[in-house]
Design a protein around this nucleic acid. Structure first.
Length: 222
DNA sequence: CGACTTTGACCGGCGC
DNA sequence: GCGCCGGTCAAAGTCG
């Protein structure tokens, strides 16, 4: 079941929806044919992608940066690669704030009534630190795009105001905590929104030949 | 039989 | 404080 799609990559953005702070946003011309993560047929595209774009939420950004920030406001953090991205067929649209969100609301109070220590441990482990996120939109028939990594689905949820359920995936690699969510756009079901959270601590698990270049690029990004 | 998916329940965050 | 909602867990089911 190769999920390599005929996806036409259109847009991507850094985001943190919960914190309502967009980290960045870019769009591509529609002649691009694949994903920015080393999806098989997109090497040309990939080489124009700025590594910092995908790799990290830039730590120097302010929380409440204006999502319509202009080109000259882009921090040098993104370097020449970003500029080349802009000069190439891709349009940079906007950059926003970084977020190193730590949920610190729950303090002390280790013991919930009727909750076992084991369960509390799990609850604490749950979303302490918000990983950097990257989200993009593709036009595709398949929900799960082939990005070279192996994913295990751990949940599905119907979110409000959408007729399509959102799926939650985790990287199957042992020490890798990267997650992704996949959902279809309500207004246009052909569009798939994929949101990655975190960074892979390993190479893609493709076993085909073209994975060599692909994996290099994936390292490049993640 | 192991890996993966499905699905209902549960939990925390957030707005009111 | 309460209710809603998104995100995660985990048991059961399915598949190869």
């Amino acid at each position: 079941m190769s999920s390599t799609s005929q996806a036409m990559l259109n847009q991507g953005l850094f985001e943190d929806q919960e914190m309502s702070s967009q980290l960045g946003f870019f769009s591509f011309s529609s002649n691009l044919t694949s994903l920015p993560f080393g999806c098989n047929q997109s090497l040309k595209t990939l080489t124009t992608m700025p590594s910092s774009l995908v790799a990290d939420a830039p730590p120097t950004f302010s929380e409440s940066a204006n999502p319509k920030q202009k080109e000259e406001d882009i921090p040098s953090h993104f370097g020449p690669q970003l500029l080349s991205l802009q000069r190439s067929s891709a349009n940079l649209w906007a950059w926003g704030g970084a977020n190193d969100c730590v949920n610190s609301k729950r303090s002390g109070g280790d013991d919930h009534l009727g909750v076992s220590a084991m369960k509390m441990k799990k609850m604490k482990a749950r979303r302490k630190v918000r990983e950097p996120r990257f989200c993009f939109k593709t036009m595709s028939d398949v929900d799960v795009l082939d990005d070279g990594y192996k994913w295990r689905k751990y949940g599905q949820k119907v979110v409000k105001n959408t007729q399509h359920p959102r799926s939650y995936y985790r990287c199957t690699q042992d020490n890798c905590r990267v997650k992704k969510r996949v959902e279809r756009l309500a207004e246009d079901p052909r569009m798939v929104i994929t949101t990655y959270e975190g960074r892979h601590a390993h190479s893609p698990s493709h076993d085909e030949d073209d994975s060599q270049a692909s994996s290099q690029l994936n390292n490049f990004f993640w």
